[in-house]
Amino acid sequence: MFAYVVRRVLATIPVMAIVALFVFSLLYIAPGDPAAVIAGDQATPDDVERIRASLGLDRPYLVRFGAWVWDIARGDLGVSIFTNLPVSLMIKQRIEPTLSLMVVTLILAVSIAVPMGVVAAWKVGTFVDKFVMGFAVLGFSVPVFVVGYLLAYIFALELDWLPVQGYTSFTQGFGPWIQNLILPAVALGSVYIALIARITRATMLEVLQQDYIRTARAKGAGQRSILFLHALKNAAVPIVTVIGIGIALLIGGAVVTESVFAIPGLGRLTVDAILRRDYPVIQGVVLLFSFVYVLVNLVIDLLYTLFDPRIRY
């Protein structure tokens, strides 16, 4: 097991290298010029050219790529073209809100979606099942920003229960922290809840047909025990897989959610950087996201062993 973990961690290095090459090359060939954005609309072509030279953007591809890789190898993600701040500092400033949003969304989604899916499978064909499936279709169909606006309108503007926007650090207390996260987490979690609930239902339906469930019933096991101890544990592997895949969904959704709720997270940092062509920031954030994704996959692979003792690495 330990050897497996070490192998998987080492395997992230070539993956990250490929991601780095890919991202750098894509940005290099993509149109757009940060120097023009910096210089502003009134700048002359000469001004733009001088700024481009001062930023080193006039250097050849290989020279720029080599310099960037050398910096990365030394643990330096570079300096933002626009803010003149280290990319690592900008990520540090933004990581807490995004992490908080993702964790709260994850907890909220799993704690709602899994029981929903289980109950829908148990009451298959009934009104409860149809309601859960209807909710899932709605969750898939309505865009995150629409859900966000609706929630903000009802719970912030009309009822005045929660703030419309912003983020308060966890260090300033749990109350203000969670107040700012409830609406964004619900908005972001709607798709995620739909996805997990559907998968849970489908997997549970299959498991509930198995012989050992019939045996458990025959032995007089209670419904709750059958559903949550016998069936859910055996249905867990695909559910955990979907939860893991869904983290990529969360990263994508966080971009929109952070904009709608003015949360100063990594999603907004990424979008701003892309629009301005702030190459070091884009490269740094994409590398971070890919690393997180690789890590999440590793954790999920390890979780399989918890739910299914037959799986060994």
Binding site: A152, A156, L157, P163, V164, S259, P264
Partner: peptide, 18 residues
């Protein structure tokens, strides 16, 4: 200064006194 990329959010924040 609070940067709000979404005008609807800024509108709601102003109405809400935030």
């Amino acid at each position: 200064w609070t940067i709000m990329p979404d005008p609807a959010t800024a509108s709601a924040a102003l109405q809400n006194g935030e």
